[in-house]
């Protein structure tokens, strides 16, 4: 019954992960991360439904809260990087290394 939801969740997660790995624009990468989080949420809710309890749904709420906080901090960082370097490419910000 719920297998379709899980398949959809897996697909969304795979698309998100692929986006994180191959896209350069920080905004897009960020959106892909959100996509992965929501794929996880979908899986949690599905499992909650499957098992007939509310724990998965509670976790999904927590994930949403964390994602909201993450968006606030992440976007601020991206905007700051863009202001200083006139670029939002994740590959250009590579100074923190060996």
């Amino acid at each position: 019954m719920t297998a379709h939801y899980l398949v959809l969740s897996g697909l969304l997660f795979a698309i998100g992960a692929m986006g994180v790995l191959i896209r350069r624009n920080a905004i897009v990468v960020f959106m892909c991360v959100e996509l992965m989080l929501n794929a996880c949420n979908l899986a949690f809710v599905t499992f909650a439904r499957q098992n007939g309890n509310l724990e998965g749904q509670i976790i999904a709420f927590f994930v949403m809260v964390v994602a909201a906080a993450e968006v606030v901090v992440g976007l601020a960082i991206i905007v700051t990087i863009f202001r200083t370097r006139r670029s939002a490419s994740v590959d250009d910000a590579n100074l923190l290394k060996y």
Partner: peptide
């Protein structure tokens, strides 16, 4: 070993995945 630290966030993401 430290050459692994390339500074490219996407590489790190790949290794996490």
């Amino acid at each position: 070993l430290r050459r692994i630290q390339t500074g490219f966030a996407r590489t790190y993401a790949l290794s996490i995945l």
